[in-house]
């Protein structure tokens, strides 16, 4: 047990530069997330659940229902990516925990002591959570598409080339969808501060609204709900066929989700910047 020596003080050094400090806050957020095993479990769950559910749903399809397999008009890409409905759950938990976990454990005070400019802290969290989600989302989408194709090809389905425009839109759009959902959850975590409350709220918005739409008997209201719910609107981007039958187009759908995300982040920023911690 040594007393404190004078210590080779780190001094201002290069760290005093404002630019380096901003990067420092991002670096700190990355270190925080990577040093929790739960982060890696949740990211694995995003990939695992998305791929597994995609394979299961693809496997349940039989081309035998179509008169000629070549005339099947199933949206095979969208079917292969159905697992996002499961994978997004893990994304939501990860993103909410990135903020609410800090309130729950009290580390939010250390975080704000290290970065007193609160918007910067939120931005750093958003950047790191967004990047991790994008990486896991890209792996999940690639895995689900490739595995789904294998299953469907074995069944004799005609498959579009992976380089076709709508397929690329569905793939990139799904990754974007996951990132936007993560940021929505992050904003909710910052606004509500409590893990259970925030996770419940985001799950309700992402899963209950579409379910509710299914229960509404009035078709006009049903469509309205599907257009406004962040998950159903956002996932319109996965469609590669029968676009006219969608309640909302692929990119407008993603724009609806973006609006939800922006609102959640704005609420989170407002709470973070105005309230005591």
């Amino acid at each position: 047990m040594s007393g404190p020596g004078p210590g080779p003080g780190p001094g201002p050094g290069p760290g005093a530069r404002a630019g380096a400090r901003r990067l420092g806050t991002v670096h700190a957020e990355w270190t925080k997330l990577r040093t929790l095993t739960s982060t890696w479990w949740l990211l694995s769950a995003v990939v695992g659940l998305t791929v597994a559910a995609g394979v299961a749903v693809s496997g349940s399809l039989t081309a035998g229902a179509c008169p000629v397999p070549a005339e099947c008009h199933e949206d095979t890409v969208r079917i292969g990516l159905t697992g996002i409905w499961l994978g997004q759950g893990a994304v939501i938990v990860l993103a909410v925990l990135a903020v609410s976990g800090e309130y729950g454990t009290g580390t939010i005070r250390a975080a704000l002591a290290a970065e007193p400019r609160r918007l910067r802290l939120l931005a750093a969290k958003a950047l790191v959570v967004g990047a991790l989600t994008a990486a896991a989302g890209a792996a999940a989408v690639a895995g689900a598409l490739l595995a789904g194709r294998r299953v469907l090809a074995a069944d004799g389905f005609p498959l579009p080339a992976l380089t076709e425009g709508p397929v690329l839109r569905a793939a990139a759009g799904t990754v974007l969808y996951l990132v936007l959902t993560a940021l929505l959850a992050l904003g909710a975590g910052a606004a509500l501060r409590d893990t259970a409350t925030a996770v419940t709220a985001v799950l309700a918005v992402c899963y209950l609204l579409p379910l509710l739409a299914g229960l509404v008997s009035e078709p006009e209201w049903q469509e309205r709900l599907l257009r406004l719910a962040p998950s159903t609107a956002g996932l319109a981007v996965q469609a590669t066929a029968n676009l006219d039958g969608l309640p909302i187009g692929p990119w407008p759908g993603l724009a609806v989700l973006t609006a939800w995300t922006a609102a959640a982040l704005a609420a989170g920023a407002a709470v973070l910047c105005t309230r005591d911690v």
Binding site: L23, A28, E29, T31, T35
Partner: peptide
Amino acid sequence: DHLLWLAHSHRL
């Protein structure tokens, strides 16, 4: 790791 993220925040 708790100390490490604090250190990283200030490029220490």
